[in-house]
Every structure is written in structure tokens, then in C-alpha cells.
Design a protein around this nucleic acid. Sequence first.
DNA 1: TTGAGAACTTGATCAGGATCAAGGTTTGCC
DNA 2: GGCAAACCTTGATCCTGATCAAGTTCTCAA
Lengths: 242, 242
Amino acid sequence: MTQIDLSPKSCANCPIRPRAICSRCTADELLELDKIKYYKTYPAGASVVLMGDPMTFVASVVSGVATLSRSMIDGRMQMVGLLLPSDFIGRPGRDTASYDVTAVSELTLCHFHKKPFEKVTHATPHVQERLVEIALDELDAARDWMLLLGRKTAREKIASFLLICVRRLGRKEGEILQLELPLTRDAMSDYLGLTIETVSRQMAALKRDGVLVLEGTRKVTIPDLNRLLDEAGDDSDGATLA
Amino acid sequence: MTQIDLSPKSCANCPIRPRAICSRCTADELLELDKIKYYKTYPAGASVVLMGDPMTFVASVVSGVATLSRSMIDGRMQMVGLLLPSDFIGRPGRDTASYDVTAVSELTLCHFHKKPFEKVTHATPHVQERLVEIALDELDAARDWMLLLGRKTAREKIASFLLICVRRLGRKEGEILQLELPLTRDAMSDYLGLTIETVSRQMAALKRDGVLVLEGTRKVTIPDLNRLLDEAGDDSDGATLA
DNA sequence: TTGAGAACTTGATCAGGATCAAGGTTTGCC
DNA sequence: GGCAAACCTTGATCCTGATCAAGTTCTCAA
């Protein structure tokens, strides 16, 4: 809830992902966006919005992890998206949420009131273009996930998830990759369309087979990325690691 | 491949879905789009584009049915979208296809060369806005499908699919709903993340239980929409039937 | 009208993952 | 340091949907 650094530079975390667009924003535009933004922090487990709620803001993740999920009346649920720092939350042009957004760890968002935000973006075609691009990126990710949910085995699902985490969160320590899983086993099962028991068993199996090394329950080391790529079944070119 | 009706009105099937935008397009804009469009017909089973192909056009479906799909090297595949008349194909701002597009029945598309199309849309903010909207609609649909693929039973999947077909293709004949299924059992299985045998068995079960009446293999009658809604598990407000 | 191929159905069996049920570890708070 | 709650693992069993294997029904062209 603290207001920090209102200079144009701070737009590094504006809802339009940093590099791609801020390079094309004029100083005036950045200032305009800065005027209408505010930061807000949610504790782990907090609900950011519920499906059907009016959406009065758009936002980008500054730090922490959030999830998007849909659920059925009987309680079954499916995570439909994972939000990591720099990711965008919101639906320009829409006014109700169509999924639940939940903070998984402590979460800080950079909010923008929707109305003024839309007034700004309205006037700037390159921001509109960027919004199309963001939506198409998410669409691609969603469709990849459909392949995973519909056709992959439990082991492949776990491997694919690890691959995503490696791409976004992995650090190279010498020759090997390390990362901290952003989700509990329970949240992983919601994301992968599995049960927590299956997640646990498959993690154990991958460990047994030397695909990964576990330290505690969240710290993972990947000794051989190609091995993991194989296990994931397909998943395009994971070779392009950040 | 036949050129038809170049008057502004013919934009009824321009890649921007009819009602929502054409009402806001000026006659000049429509004419501009008309100049760069051409029609093309594909036989049933034909491939429109393959994943990875350069995408030199955008298009909208004039008649017929097409599918979007992704597949794994070992042949497993998952349909990630169903394209019916008025649906949009293409990725403004992207230049390679990220799924296969296949004609399921004889298919006629209204194509626009991408470069000139982008030149036109570039200059018109309301078209850009409409593109964001289209992308968000597809994203919502994709995420609904993720819930289906990850958490629904075979029977619920079939019921959900029928519901979608009813919404887009159903005709009310007196008090009951009729429709012609746009897909073979085989394509349905690809869409629902099932096998063809399971699709066949669950269709038989729904028929046995009086949820639907089959005439031949593609003609379906739904005697009670609420019954179908229940079977689909959740699926928001299917009450809003066209 | 007939025949071939595609599309669909039905049955028997199998297996991957769900479910049920303990028990073990971490984490954080007093 | 001790305790409770959350988180995770492991085992036994079950069940849904996959797989394998015939058949049957459409469709359409000769």
C-alpha cells in the first residue's frame, strides 16, 4: 500500500510489460500512467478478486506469485494461469472478472484505476498493440496448457511444469540449474489437473530417476536440462532458456 | 477462390466480427478492407496452415468448419479451438502460425493479406480495440476449456460440448432444440481429450438417459436444455441461448 | 444396386491416476 | 524448545477411461 518512486522510470513495472513497450512510450505518457498508479500488498492466501466481481483496475505483479483459477459449483477447480513478477492482470474493455485471482505468497501489485488507464491507452495506439500482443501471448500459453491437460501423462505434466519454472525462475549455478518452486504440491495439482498424491509420487519418481535433485521440498536442481525436455514430451524449444 | 460482392456491405464477414465493429467502421474503412480481401475454398480435410508456417494473411470463416490443433512428436494431439462461421483466424502482429488449422468440412474463408490489413487497422483505434476484445474472448474460451480438460468427467465433457454446439448452431423448433453436430466422433475426441470409443459410449449413455435424441449420427435433438446444463457440470449461464 | 471405405458402436480387458488412509516433516508461534 | 497446523509422502485399493478387437452402419461412387 506504499507509494514509491513516482518518476517515469518506475514504469518499469507498468501493466504493459517493461522492455517491449516502455521503450516506445514517451516521457509524457509514462508520467500520465504514473499519476494514476498505486501499490498494494496482499498476504499469502488472500483473494485479490473473485469471479464475477466488478474489475475496477488493471495491475501488474511487482513481486510474489498469484494464480488465476476457475471452479465448479461442487468444488472441483482448475488453475488457468500463474502470475509471476511483470505479468499483467486485467481485462481492458471488460468490467467483470472471469476467474478468481489469489495471492499464493505475499504479493505486491502495481494497480491502475481502470477508467483513467483506458483513457491513456485509448489515445496511444502502440499501447493498444501491446495489449493485443499480451492477450495473444496468454492465448498461446493457455493453448499449450490445453495440450498438457488433455493429452499428457502425470509424469510429463510435472516435467512440463518444472520446465516453465526453470524458464522463468531458474538460475544457472556453474553448469547446473537451480530454482525455487513457486507453488505448494497442492497448488501444483490444481495447475496440472492432478491430485496432490499423484504430484508427490511423480516428483519422487523423477527424483529417483535422476531427472531432478530435491533439497527440502521446494528447492530443485536440474542436473541435465535436455533430460527434462525429453520428459516433458514435447513443449517446443525449451532450449531457449533465459 | 471466387471474388464476390465488393460493396462495403460485404464486410459483414470481414475478420472483425460483424455486428460489433462494422457499425463503427466508416464507409471508407470498409472500402479499404474490401480492396484487399479475397475468398478461398478448401475441401474437407485440407490443411489451411501448419504450425510454424509463415502467416501471410488473416481471415474469417464465411462457411464451413475448421479446427485449431497442436500435436506432439509422437502423434498425440489436442484440438485447441473450433472455428465456425464469423470466427477470426490470425495473429495480428505475429508472423508464424502456432497451431495447425484444418478444414473439417468444405470451408470458405475471407482472406486479407496481412501487411495491408495491418496498415489499415494500425490507423483505426476502434479496430485495434476490437482485436483486443476478440483475443480476450478466445482467452476466456480457452480457459473454460482448461477447466473441462483438467477436471470434468467424460460425460460432462460431452454435455459441455453439446452445449457449445447448441449455443452456436442450435435451432428452436417449437419447444425443442435441434442441431447438426459439426464434428465427427473422432474430431470430438480430439477436442475433448478423450478417445473415440469413450465419446461413442457416452453419447450412447446420454441418449439412453433421455438427455438427447439421435437421428442418424449427427442430428441431435435436446428435449430439455436444463437437463443438459446439469449434465455439463457448471459452464456458467448456458441459459443465454441465441 | 452394389461394394468399398469411412465412420461409428459395442464388448472385454487393462492401467494410470483417483481415492482412502495413515504417518512423517516443516514451519511458525508461544 | 515444544506444540499445532500446514504441508508432504507412502501404501492399498478402486474406478474411469484407454486399449485391443470385432462388428455394424453410413456414404458415395461406379
